[in-house]
Design a binder for these strands. Structure first.
Lengths: 345, 345
DNA sequence: TTGAAAGCGATACCAT
DNA sequence: ATGGTATCGCTTTCAA
């Protein structure tokens, strides 16, 4: 039983030094020493003093002041994660996993949401920069190349995920193979015997969505299946999608693809509003939805990013870049798909 | 023209001082001055120099080094948020809103998930403490009173939300009225003509769940309706809940209540597995589910925390405590409920 | 093997 | 109205 002292204001390295009867430098030296395989201190200090110092530090309840360390070293052991919306389950899961990995590696994680607006993205990047994060993992908005450049100018590593910024160099990437994801969606519908596939999206040049659409079209052609896509204005999509679906069905379309999470949400809501049933009236494949859909109506399918994998690749790549070993590369991930309540492949 | 190299790793307050031809102290003084109503600087510096200093700072792209400020002042303009699982939509939404409010108030937010394990909770509290957060907003695990005490000993403000730690003093609280939430769930089912209500939960002394159950029982008695609750082992709930639901239906129970998010997830999955349809075979009220259920089968209802309200109250209360105005109190929130795809009350 | 001392960048007290 | 300077806690040469 250790009789822990009543912790008062704060124990500094100076207190430890005094209590252990050594100099401040030595304490710092020992406390930052790497441990040998036999658990011992790899530094020039004698094992005996090293142990005494460590023990004293523990007894006093010493913890290094991060601000001071950060000021002195320029490192903060903090990484910044920026997504469009943390309450989107897909991002929530990725962030959670990144946070866990980072925590295990001794890093703190700062997470922020941009609402997909580049002014917010820029502001957050600045804020994180001035807070001294050691690296970034971001799902970028369209058109934030300048912000990324700003990070790179400070020689901080960046890993992009979920969305690409084509042409940007010097960053790591962990991206879904979106064309393959599109092909996957069509194949699911083919295997359910559908012949007339429709896709709804909003007007955009987000490469993710375009690539998915291309994948769909390609696979549909390959299978000799009709493929039609409807393009709506982003602002009024939620409203307009209802009539699009209504008309689609009138015209004999028997399956719909919603190529992003936002579209999936609006699309399924519209289907409920129209009273269509899945898959009798319309088969459906959505994208980027949570893995809890088994809770709900299990009769539609999803194509997803494997969130854990994305988190793992992203964090490992960033950590490697921060530490100096490991390098920033581009990792293309295979899509995952969910049929009903079963995950295959 | 100075013959300095163009590349400046970072602009410091000293650079600004030199460029503006004043002392470091004055720069700090002006840059920390509060602004008057007419937009001007409330400090003893003359308006002219004040303006010159600010302009110079902007021109050089100066941003204060947070580590240095934090070291010097003890403040970090950072708050720590701890939840059980950020990928749980309910927490995701609350965190997102807190983050936004904090951001607007000039604070950075650090979010972490505990997985509902108190060792994790403790570890995270320590980590946040040593990182120098200015305050905490936490959904505590059961049995972490000691961690909270540790925070309070440092005189940092804490706001609890979602879950209470009865008996802990000196903290703010933003809590759902869980008894009322339970009563609400039963009333929904009554209004749908149900007469035999069942509830499933795992073995626990989490006050949230107990209070909900009590609310249910109370309201059922008041309405002369039968109420049965099944208590499972936490570890095997996911599996056992299937047979519980099967038996319940055999025994004539016509409605189920799942009094937490975790139980709701398992419960609905089980219902899908059993092939029951809602509400023909069983009416259902879940708890703490996301607001996107309109996407899915809308034929069951939810009782929720109003996430924005929780976030707003929590953050305001914390900010008040940090700033010194405002005080920590207990705020009890009314439940929100969702019927089908419509939100009422 | 150990210690003294010079900063890191910003703040705030005390002079002027 | 402005400036000098000690200090926050820690890391890191360089000397002893």
């Amino acid at each position: 039983m250790s009789d822990r002292p009543i912790v008062s204001p704060d124990v500094t390295i100076r207190d430890v030094a005094e209590a252990a009867g050594v100099s401040i430098s030595l304490v710092s030296f020992v406390l930052n020493a790497r441990r040998g395989p036999s658990g011992e201190y790899l530094c020039s200090a004698s094992q005996k003093t090293a142990e005494r110092i460590v023990e004293t530090a523990e007894r006093l309840g010493y913890h290094r002041n991060k601000a001071a360390t950060s000021l002195r070293t320029g490192r903060s052991d903090t990484i910044g994660v920026i997504v469009s919306d943390i309450s989107n389950t897909c991002f929530g899961q990725i962030c959670r996993k990144i946070e866990k990995l980072a925590n295990d590696a001794g890093y703190l994680t700062i997470i922020a949401s941009t609402d997909d607006r580049k002014e917010n993205f820029r502001q957050l990047v600045d804020k994180f920069l001035y807070s001294g994060v050691d690296g970034f993992i971001v799902a970028p908005c369209h058109g934030v190349e300048d912000s990324i450049a700003k990070i790179l100018k400070r020689r901080l590593p960046v890993v992009l995920f979920d969305r690409d910024l084509p042409g940007v160099e010097g960053v790591g990437r962990v991206l879904l193979d979106n064309e393959k994801a599109g092909r996957c969606a069509v194949r699911i519908l083919c295997s359910q015997g559908r012949k007339h596939i429709g896709l709804v999206r909003y007007e955009t040049d987000i490469p993710t969505i375009i690539a998915r659409e291309n994948g769909c079209r390609e696979e549909a052609e390959k299978n000799g299946i009709s493929f039609t896509s409807a393009i709506l204005a982003r602002e009024t999509m939620r409203r307009d999608i209802v009539s699009v679906l209504h008309n689609a069905r009138e015209e004999g379309i028997d399956a719909m693809i919603f190529p992003s999470n936002a579209i999936t949400v609006d699309g399924l809501s519209a289907i409920n509003e129209l009273g269509f049933s899945i898959p009798e009236d319309l088969a459906v494949v959505g994208f980027d939805q949570e893995d809890r859909s088994e809770m709900f109506n299990p009769w539609f399918s999803f194509v997803n990013q494997p969130t854990k994998l994305v988190a793992e690749y992203s964090f490992r790549m960033l950590l490697g870049a921060i530490k100096g070993d490991g390098q920033l590369e581009t990792k293309i991930i295979n899509p995952l798909y969910t049929l009903g309540s079963k995950i295959k492949k």
